[in-house]
């Protein structure tokens, strides 16, 4: 280990070969070692990145889900909370049938229904409807939203209003396309 001669030969280009081929040997050694060292990481690179290339579906594929009959909604615009139960949900190797995946607030005025994803567009906590103030409130970082979903308090950290879901009324039932959006940006970009 502490042999002074060994140390010398390492830095001494003139020892056995001319400088050029010596440098080539060193470069090759470094290259070969680096390739060996990096190989296992490279082998796993695609697996790690798999979630990025795997697109779980565009908006077009989001199914219509039957949520509740219209009479369950008071027609004064007061929101009520409903679970969203999807017929099929895939999580890696498991396929679930009829599982709750989230919830929405739905309010109705006459024939018009409006539905909001319960998830706060800030960082994804669940918002509460407050009947005293007739608005929505996020208990995480105190964002407030009006009944139309818009941000009402300037101090709210949420960059956009509550996310409206596509809705339709068919056979006296409310149908919703349940969709999640990217958190904490002003634009509404579907997560997929």
């Amino acid at each position: 280990m502490s042999d002074p001669k060994a140390k010398k030969s390492l830095s001494d280009d003139s020892c056995c070969q001319d400088g050029k081929s010596r440098r080539l040997v060193i470069a090759s050694t470094i290259g070969v070692s680096a390739a060996c060292a990096l190989f296992p990481f490279a082998a796993g690179l695609t697996s790690i990145l798999d979630p990025v290339v795997r697109n779980s579906g565009s908006t077009a594929k989001v199914p219509w889900t039957r949520v509740t009959s219209v009479i369950n909604l008071p027609d004064d615009g007061k929101p009520a909370k409903f679970e969203i139960i999807l017929a099929e949900v895939k999580d890696a190797w498991t396929t679930y049938k009829n599982v709750p995946v989230g919830a929405v607030y739905i309010s109705r005025k006459g024939d018009e229904v409006i539905a909001f994803n319960l998830k706060c567009p800030h960082l994804g906590c669940a918002v509460d409807y407050r009947s005293k103030t007739n608005d929505y409130f996020c208990p995480c970082h105190n964002s407030t939203f009006g009944l139309d979903g818009s941000v009402t308090d300037a101090n709210s950290p949420s960059p956009r209003g509550l996310d409206t879901m596509h809705t339709k009324i068919e056979d006296k039932f409310v149908w919703i396309r349940f969709q999640q959006y990217r958190p904490n940006i002003a634009e509404k970009i579907p997560l997929s």
Binding site: I48, L49, P51, V52, R54, S56, D91, A92, W93, T94, Q180, R182, P183, N184, L191, S192
Partner: peptide, 23 residues
């Protein structure tokens, strides 16, 4: 996701997808 440019991608890699689950 707040990390500029690669944030959303990084989030997917850490979460193992879009939704929380096995991965």
């Amino acid at each position: 996701a707040e990390v500029p440019l690669i944030g959303p991608m990084l989030q997917k890699i850490v979460v193992g997808g879009v939704e929380y689950g096995h991965q």
